[in-house]
Design a protein around this nucleic acid. Structure first.
Lengths: 62, 62
DNA sequence: ACACAATGTAAGGTTATGTTGACATAGTCA
DNA sequence: TGACTATGTCAACATAACCTTACATTGTGT
């Protein structure tokens, strides 16, 4: 699973810590997703999509 | 996470076993998702969406 | 150069997701 | 009735996801 998290975050000038806070996960969890270490759970993927106000499919691929 | 799997499957007259085959998971995994025992992983959610040819958001809620 | 913020990474743990195998129940059909 | 299908469920297990704590590295600004 590829994702555009890093770009979307950069567009908003958020740090990983800031994003983590908004998603209610640890900064390391955000980092792990961005660096492709693992995929988010479905509920977390939905929280991410809602936060960036776009469909899940526009953030995650493959 | 709520989902419309059971309905979508019924619309196509597929058994859980048939759906499981198409998704390349066990029948029990399909059953567990339908009965709300757990959420699918993000990759599996994408496979489901692709199979039913609709956005992830139209199948899963909450 | 120095301090500090941001990011990457690692170890060790808990919970979630998915597997196989097995069994119970209800419905269908020859 | 007896065989078969679909569904729900359980147990035991493996791996993935996510957590915390901690430390290393990289980037930024004075």
């Amino acid at each position: 699973m590829n994702n555009r998290l890093k770009v979307l975050r950069a567009e908003r000038n958020w740090s990983q810590a800031e994003l983590a806070l908004r998603l209610d996960v640890s900064r390391q969890a955000v980092n792990a997703i961005e660096t492709g270490k693992h995929d988010p759970s479905l509920p977390l993927a939905f929280r991410i999509a809602r936060l960036f106000e776009m469909p899940v499919e526009e953030i995650f691929h493959d």
